[in-house]
């Protein structure tokens, strides 16, 4: 395969054609935050944390959803990108329970995020109660960012079951089951591939939830 030249933060790197900018930039050592993207499920482009500047493009592009091109000049760090990522991180952390997301915690610190400067949460996310409707895993949607990895794992990306569904718009948009049914009636096959890909701890094995409860 003929590798193609790409400049990442001033550094010339050789990338495989078809690779994503995210992949190439990470290999070049750039620390780009990313929440929604998942190789296996194909989820991409929702969280916008991995936006990078690409020379000649009018606005930042999501690195996870952009394919490298020969001669592409990519910049993953700038004041503007930092501000942008900080704002998104702050809004996520303001609206969502991020207590189990260790990556989020480190980014909040790295970006000196101050979620409180936006005032009170506007969505009802944090008020969502855990849903314990099956023998295998618990859904704690107060911790859900809408990255949609679970939806893709359940449907197109891996399992082809489509037990999970999506509802609502704006900040109240949320993952749910088909017809809001209990998982046990939703066609779910409990493969747990949604738990596997969940980056926030919103989906948690029952055994783990029980252990955590014991510890509290």
């Amino acid at each position: 395969m003929n590798l193609i030249p790409v400049v990442v933060n001033g550094l010339l790197v050789w990338a495989e054609p078809g690779a994503t900018v995210l992949n190439v930039a990470q290999k070049a050592g750039a620390g780009i935050p990313t929440l929604c993207h998942h190789e296996r499920t194909g989820t991409k482009g929702h969280c916008r944390l991995c936006l990078v500047e690409i020379a000649g493009r009018p606005r930042p592009e999501p690195a996870c959803a952009t394919t490298v091109e020969s001669g592409m000049v990519v910049n993953t760090e700038s004041e503007e990108l930092t501000d942008l990522r900080r704002t998104v991180l702050e809004l996520v952390a303001l609206e969502t329970n991020v207590e189990h997301d260790v990556k989020m915690a480190s980014w909040l610190e790295e970006y000196r995020a101050d979620p409180g400067r936006w005032g009170d949460p506007l969505s009802g996310r944090r008020e969502r109660e855990p849903i314990r409707d099956n023998a295998f895993f618990v859904r704690e949607y107060d911790k859900c960012y809408n990255c949609r990895r679970c939806l893709d794992a359940c449907g197109e990306g891996i399992q082809g079951v489509w037990a999970l569904s999506f509802t609502g718009r704006v900040a109240e948009a949320a993952v749910t089951t088909v017809f809001d049914l209990p998982l046990t009636e939703s066609g779910c096959v409990f493969c747990g591939n949604c738990v596997q890909v969940c980056p926030t701890g919103a989906l948690v094995p029952l055994e783990e939830a029980l252990l955590a409860e014991e510890a509290r």
Partner: peptide, 24 residues
């Protein structure tokens, strides 16, 4: 803040807060 589809984070979270800032 009513019409955002809920897909990308900046818009789904940001439009309600923009509206809130205007109210404030």
């Amino acid at each position: 803040a009513h019409e955002s589809c809920g897909r990308c984070f900046p818009c789904s979270l940001g439009t309600p807060h923009l509206h809130q800032l205007v109210l404030r």
